[in-house]
Computed example of a mutant assay.
Amino acid sequence: MRILMVLAHPLEDSFAASVARAAKETLESRGNTVDLLDLYREGFEPCLSAAERVSYFSQRYDASEVAGWIGRLQAADGLMLVFPQWWFNFPAILKGFFDRVFAPGVAFDHDLAGGRIIPRLTNIKLFCALTTTGSPWWVVHLYMGNPVRRLLKRGIAAFCSKDVRFRMVSLHDMDRATEAKRKRHIERVRALMSRI
């Protein structure tokens, strides 16, 4: 399987980078191909440009500034996101990746008659998120209703791809996680990757 792994963390020595490294190593050891897209290191600009916004509902979306990243997404069989949750949401750079790359004519088409969107990322069969959150499990799930999981699974994955396998693995209470807890999480990630 060819997997596009999108890393969204500003620090090169972050725990997210460690998770991405472990996932990539395990996937490649199982014969998968991993294209690591580190949004910060590649200088991805998250802000939707005026040309992109103007063309959003036109005949053709202006993807000229993000064509390289779109090509990498379209070449993948699986998409893996590695990121921290900040304020129960995506880092801004990852939200910008969705805004600019998951665009009309790329990730979906507008159904002008019914107002729905029609999935176009039929190449994506696996959609996986490896994430951390500073809040305890009960705050994320019981109080907040796990908004990131809902957005990814019910929104982005379901609207942009058909018959996609979705998986999300989170380390909760990251701000107080011991080294032992972090190591257990890395092993959990490796175990999941070994089954792909």
Rank of each mutant, 00 (worst) to 15 (best):
A51H: 12
M193D: 00
V19E: 00
L171I: 11
F83D: 01
D99M: 12
N89C: 13
R30H: 11
A20G: 04
G145A: 11
F44A: 13
P46G: 15
R195I: 01
A157N: 06
G114W: 12
L151W: 09
L27I: 04
N89Q: 13
R100H: 08
P10N: 14
I124N: 01
A75P: 11
K153D: 14
I156G: 00
T178S: 15
P147A: 06
E179M: 05
K153W: 14
D38P: 01
L73P: 01
T132N: 07
G114K: 14
D77G: 15
L4C: 04
R41H: 05
P91A: 15
F102V: 02
E52K: 08
P136C: 05
F159W: 14
L112D: 13
R100M: 08
A8R: 07
V106F: 11
A22M: 04
F127A: 07
L27F: 10
D35K: 04
A180S: 07
A63L: 09
L79S: 03
D62Q: 10
C128R: 10
A158S: 13
D62E: 10
H185V: 03
R60M: 05
L130K: 03
F98S: 07
R116F: 14
V6C: 10
F166D: 02
R154A: 13
H185S: 04
I117G: 02
V82N: 01
A113Q: 14
